[in-house]
Design a protein around this nucleic acid. Sequence first.
DNA 1: CCAGAATCCATACGGCGTAAAGATGGGAAT
DNA 2: ATTCCCATCTTTACGCCGTATGGATTCTGG
Lengths: 216, 216
Amino acid sequence: MDSGTTRSRKRGSYHHGDLRNALIVAAAELIEESGSLGFTMADAARRAGVSNAAPYRHFRDKEALLEAVSQLGFFGLGATAREVRDRYPAGSIEAIIALGQNYIAFVTEKSAFYDLMWGDIGKRAFDADNFDRKAVGFFVLVESVRAYLAAQGATDVDELDTAIKLWALVHGFSAICMSGKLPYFHAAADVPAMLDSATRSFLAGVIAGRGKSPSS
Amino acid sequence: MDSGTTRSRKRGSYHHGDLRNALIVAAAELIEESGSLGFTMADAARRAGVSNAAPYRHFRDKEALLEAVSQLGFFGLGATAREVRDRYPAGSIEAIIALGQNYIAFVTEKSAFYDLMWGDIGKRAFDADNFDRKAVGFFVLVESVRAYLAAQGATDVDELDTAIKLWALVHGFSAICMSGKLPYFHAAADVPAMLDSATRSFLAGVIAGRGKSPSS
DNA sequence: CCAGAATCCATACGGCGTAAAGATGGGAAT
DNA sequence: ATTCCCATCTTTACGCCGTATGGATTCTGG
């Protein structure tokens, strides 16, 4: 109804009004549709309804735009993590497992964003000055692990160390799922069930073996 | 000394002689130097000393060449895995841990190849008909896990299920290391030590908790 | 020695990233 | 309200990349 496919604030005006955000949204959509490889600046500009060169008034280059999309991904992941945490009792192992299931679901459903979030672009997105690393969601896991360890009376276990190991486990499941290679080795692998049992095995081993030096 | 930078079989001849392999090597070098993003077919052709269009006599398109580079990566990973296995006693937990350390070292040292091996290109590389999935190295881990479980008298534990979980743990550590995000959460994390302790915790938990249904 | 096939080159086309430089309009100061 | 400035967007342009086409060169089998 307004100027084509865009929903700009000022309809039909020469100035777009909110081009920066429109470009981020357009880029995210395009990447979700066709992958981050093959994404082009020109496509994003077309979808936002502006010329080829207009984006360069808001982003230094193509990678700067992708950086913004990457940050969007981390915000989303953190937001779902907090939602999940609020649905489970603090200190329960189920909360930790649910955080993991949520992580795997998020990464695999938005697999087109994987490169952006964990590749070179994600590196720059993370140490961009305007990026709040406290909102990332990892600290939700650390808190849940701390509560769980306290509930188990294992206060001498390092919760940060343990959370990183759980993160690695969960991230690995996500990456392996996305890679599409799992069926070659285990035809009917039930990943959620495997994460559940692996988490329980690992935490049982951590608690049983405490007293030994944790990692470093 | 021969025709510039290439080492072709037939020096100075019109035909290159082994252009297909020369292109794979050139592509691998370029990717190692400057990352897989930004790799161009024209660069590979230049480095091999041929014209822009010559590669298309050997590879359908750019992705077909990258597919070959990806397969090279998997062969290399499998080869190092077999070397590592042969240096440790069968059935020892140290063999399993060493396989993991080797995996992390391989992936992080050749981080430029990560996208190729585990992204969309790697998907096609894996189900290419000429690719031998048995040589991939995962089966080395499965065998080592089977031997370990047998040595521990835990023959009722599913070794494939357990190997996949260990794979996930190790792959996750690799991906997290490469992503460069670990320092933001744990400044001086000692990843090899964490893998060691995590593997021991997990396997201890698996053996202690056996009898329960494994995964599916 | 001679086809015919395989390989490589020269050329060309469209698309992309991006740098200028000019057009347009919103907002602050008058 | 008018003027002026500046951010925003457009037009244009350049070089590079992927890749199709057709011609040149060399190898191979008979």
